[in-house]
């Protein structure tokens, strides 16, 4: 048995694009192809949350569909619990709970309960066992009160939760989630993220895609940043941010400022840079200090300022974000 839940080796997906140039006299068919996923490799450890972060069209869904047997790779290899996905698809599907993006993965004309009953049976779970499981899931995902209404009447958040319950009905050790929080309001998104963390606590392995960097940062043990079908970075969120070699920035709002204090602060070793600016409108100083060794300097900094009889009205601490990492790697913003 492999100690990886998912192993992906040199995975590639090329889509054929048929472009028809129709003119009256001749019909030329150009066959072009588009590489959606280009030679990616990564391993997901058992029990971790592995995040796939990338902009629209990066190839996240394509990768996920290949892992969950819905798409055949052009080349490359995928192993799940050591088994080859192409050769053992039925065996593998028993171990995977996949939720694809969009809210259309369940029957809208069936009730929540009926959906779960159907998908339980499709996994060989019936009778009393199924009933217990379904009651438990409905309760867990706060759907029990409306379990007997058809899904078409559900809100987006409820639809997402029933889809999640569906994926969990066979108790799969590996859960794959494609953009689980997209389209949800902040509150529902937060609830969902909590649920995902619970999955992890239950010992499941989770592979999720997202284009929200905060989400990837908050949830993932490790993150693969993907762009144009290629993994351009793969590490823990902390290491990714550290790799930027960017210092933290502290912004102070102060009632006064002068060169003497600035000189004094410059004596502190880990301070890299000081920028001061007087805000005419609000009659206050804004001072940006860049430090490179994290939190130890902060105390020193504040003591020095207050000892000079300067009042600190406000201060803000900024760490580099995954967004910065992405910009650094690709030269563009994740949101573009």
């Amino acid at each position: 048995m492999s100690h990886y839940a998912i192993e992906v080796q040199d995975l590639k997906k090329e889509f054929a694009i048929k472009k028809k140039n129709v003119s009256f006299w001749k019909r030329r068919k150009e066959n072009k192809s588009f590489v959606a996923v280009n030679d990616i490799s990564f391993n997901v450890n058992k029990g971790e949350i592995f995040g796939f972060l990338g902009p629209n069209g990066a190839g996240k869904t394509t990768t996920i569909k290949m892992i969950s047997t819905l798409l055949r790779p052009t080349c490359g290899k995928i192993l799940i619990n050591g088994l080859d996905v192409q050769k053992n698809s039925m065996e593998i599907l028993k171990n995977l709970g996949t939720v694809l993006a969009g809210e259309r993965s369940i029957y809208w004309k069936l009730t929540g309960r009926e959906n779960l009953k159907y998908f339980a049976a499709m996994n060989g779970i019936t009778g009393k066992k199924a009933k217990e499981k379904i009651d438990y899931l409905l309760k867990r995902f706060s759907l029990d009160k409306r379990a007997d209404e058809t899904v078409e009447k559900y809100s987006t958040g409820m639809k997402q939760r029933i889809a999640l319950a569906k994926a969990l009905v066979a108790d799969p050790p590996i859960v794959i989630l494609d953009e689980p929080t997209s389209g949800l309001d902040p509150q529902s998104a937060r609830n969902l993220r909590e649920i995902i963390l619970e999955f992890k606590e239950e010992g499941r392995t989770i592979l999720l895609t997202t284009h929200y960097m905060e989400e990837a940062d908050q949830l993932s043990d490790r993150i693969a940043i993907i762009d144009h079908g290629e993994i351009i970075a793969l590490d823990t969120p902390k290491n990714l941010k550290r790799s930027l070699n960017k210092s933290n920035t502290i912004t102070f709002e102060l009632n006064r400022w002068n060169d003497v204090i600035e000189k004094e602060l410059q004596q502190i070793k880990s301070i890299e840079n000081i920028n001061s600016y007087f805000d005419e409108n609000n009659r206050k100083w804004e001072v940006k200090v860049q430090i490179n060794n994290g939190n130890e300097t902060i105390n020193n900094l504040i003591t020095t300022i207050t000892n000079s009889n300067i009042k600190i009205n406000n201060f803000k601490f900024e760490e580099p974000t995954l967004e910065d990492v992405f910009i650094n790697l690709t030269g563009k913003s994740l949101r573009e």
Binding site: L70, T98, L100, G102, R104
Partner: peptide
């Protein structure tokens, strides 16, 4: 309606 994929995801 999109449920075909869900069915193909069952073993």
């Amino acid at each position: 309606s999109g449920v075909l994929e869900s069915n193909w995801l069952t073993p």
